[in-house]
């Protein structure tokens, strides 16, 4: 298990540790506990639709961040504006449930077909 060097993730987010599907029993962990960051079951491939944030409509209210069941929504620093932060979605963790889009009072999240 190793951190993927090609994985350009926000350094403040949990890093994903790559996990090769074992081909034989001995290569499996003997217990269902892995070093943090290993996603035995990735969520990304569950998605039929993915949430897209409209940064103009978004009021930064934080509702979606609070309600996302998979903690896939976070505040990201905006490169162009110092100390400004905007909502971002971690698509490695997002499972496409659509709760964020449903709960946003400002229609700032749209679900788009994958």
């Amino acid at each position: 298990m190793a951190t993927d060097p090609n994985n350009k993730r926000n350094p403040n987010r949990p890093q994903i540790v790559s996990w090769n599907i074992p081909s034989k029993l001995e290569d499996y962990l003997p217990y269902p506990h892995a070093p943090s960051g290993v996603l035995i079951e990735g969520h990304a491939n569950w998605r039929l639709e993915k949430p897209i944030v409209d940064c103009v409509a978004c009021k930064n209210c934080g509702t979606c961040e609070l309600l996302c069941p998979d903690a896939a929504i976070f505040y990201e620093e905006v490169a162009s504006a110092k100390s400004a932060k905007s909502i971002a979605i971690d698509y490695e963790l997002c499972k496409g449930c659509g709760i964020c889009a449903f709960e946003c009072k400002f229609n700032a999240i749209k679900m788009e077909k994958e």
């Binding site: 499996y28 269902p32 035995i40 079951e41």
Partner: peptide, 19 residues
């Protein structure tokens, strides 16, 4: 830190039971 008690789907579940 550990990710305690992760889920293991149809592909992997049996291996944990064999252990």
């Amino acid at each position: 830190p550990l990710s305690l008690g992760f889920s293991a789907g149809p592909r992997d579940n049996t291996a944990f039971k064999q252990h």
